[in-house]
Write a protein that binds this DNA or RNA. Structure first.
Lengths: 140, 140
DNA sequence: TTAATTACTTGCAAATCGAAAGTAATAATC
DNA sequence: GATTATTACTTTCGATTTGCAAGTAATTAA
């Protein structure tokens, strides 16, 4: 369904063939850090993604097994999107993006939100906490 | 010169407003890990970037102070591009992309290159080594 | 049973991508 | 010194992607 093509055999470039665009990691971030799980949840986030882009990205992520899509037994309308372990394992990438922003972006973007303070005192602890927490709340 | 616009105030989304595309981090990777520094160096890399894209991305990176552009005193033709400290500080992001690939991409892309083995035994040591090395060879 | 909500799809104009060709300056070779 | 090659671009143009707006279809709530 997804036609994944890789530019070359470099691991870093190949990761960017899957994740390297304006929206894919933002959606993963919204799931991991903001607990968003429905189409509406994503639409309502500050980033302001358009419906058509969201739709194609969710299919892309599902096709790559970074997220799953399912319906709850008591509701035939709402789709629930959840990170898989493969999706969850991108947490360190997301955290490093936040650290880079904290260090380098504040002069360019003065009203940037504060990151979780733990990011500078116990990065690995924060990553572990986020992943454990997500599993607990979403993958019972 | 660059018109940087941010979607919102989230540090992660803002980092992706600058770095979140198919080429920007690839160029930084080529500088950091493959020691590429001229227009021709980048063109010859396996990723196969087109000249117009490379040209706009180098200007974009220069405008963001992630790289500098200068000429050597003995050659008026060749431009030398170098990572700034701000550019160098994206090293952990690049390393995490490599780790994610190693763990998740090999079934999708069987001939993926091996990463430096140190990436799994001493990640922080590798990051420090790469940055120190780059400084030594390019910013003395 | 009518209205609202959710999760989409479609249409379209604008922006961006990327292959190819062209250009301008400098450096190397004959 | 003239020709050729190299480097670093720019331009053109068709194809693709983006993103706004509007529409649709199924389900749920009032």
């Amino acid at each position: 369904m997804n036609d994944v093509t890789f530019r070359c055999d470099c691991p870093i470039s190949s990761a960017l063939d899957l994740l390297g665009d304006k929206w894919t990691l933002v959606i993963i971030k919204q799931m991991l850090l903001e607990n968003r799980k429905t189409f509406k949840d994503f639409l309502e986030a500050d980033e302001g993604i358009a419906t058509n882009i969201l739709s194609t990205r969710l299919k892309w992520l599902e096709g790559l097994d970074l997220i799953t899509k399912e319906k709850l037994p008591d509701n035939k309308k709402v789709n629930i999107y959840r990170l898989t372990e493969k999706g969850l394992s991108s947490t360190p990438i997301i955290i490093e993006l936040a650290i880079w922003s904290d260090k380098n972006l504040r002069q360019l973007h003065p009203i940037l939100q504060e990151s979780n303070a733990m990011i500078h005192t116990d990065k690995q602890g924060l990553i572990d906490h986020l992943i454990t927490n997500y599993r607990k709340q979403n993958l019972e």
